[in-house]
Amino acid sequence: MTGKNMIKRLLALLLLASIGAMFASLLLAYVPDTDLNFTARYYAEHTAADIGAANIVTAIIVTYRGLDTLGEVTVLFLASGIVGLVLSFGRKQNTTLRNLVPVGELLTTASQYLAPIIMLLGVYVFVNGHLTPGGGFQGGAIIASGMLLLLLSDPLKRFSHTLIATVESFSGVGYIALGLVGLVLAGGFLDSRILPNGVLGELISAGAIPLIYSLIGLKVGAEFSSMLTSLSETEDL
């Protein structure tokens, strides 16, 4: 058994050594660019005039490569759906109450006050996605962290799956609908220029980006929350 293990480990090391040699040749041949490449230069020069977003990464994610983001949100939706499906499969109805270790006073009291503030921070992050670092994905994750805190303070708490599913469906439909409006009123699917660009650096600017990113934020938050709740409810198995 140990001999077999040794051979396995040796093979693994051999494989890693070859991959490592490839990486080393990549690393040694790498020279950092001194100037932006063609695509990046286009984004740097045209974002402010065309899209009106101060954060160029947001402009790329929401508008220039909006279709990618739609695919990403879809993948996340599928993942959370499959997590729910896999874990609910064969769940028993009658649950035996586990004797849980009681949650500390500090955690319950603090989470009552902190969870709304954390969710507010999440909303702030995705509403300001076109101005400051952050956006829908980060904001959604922060909202889900607030949910996580509530779950930790009361492990037997059950969030309404209907609410989560409703938020998720409405934000998803709204996102697609805004994309279709862009197809009609502006240059193409998910074009953010259906609203005026406004002044660079103001909250209400950059066309439909704040709207689209808020919808993405709600959707991502709902998806992560549904993943967390389905994982935490598995004691019913």
Partner: peptide, 20 residues
């Protein structure tokens, strides 16, 4: 942007998924 995402998602949520 990436730093925020990694801090919120990579180090916050996924660690808790593991712990659940």
């Amino acid at each position: 942007d990436v730093a925020m995402t990694e801090a919120a998602i990579g180090s916050g949520l996924s660690t808790f998924l593991f712990f659940f």
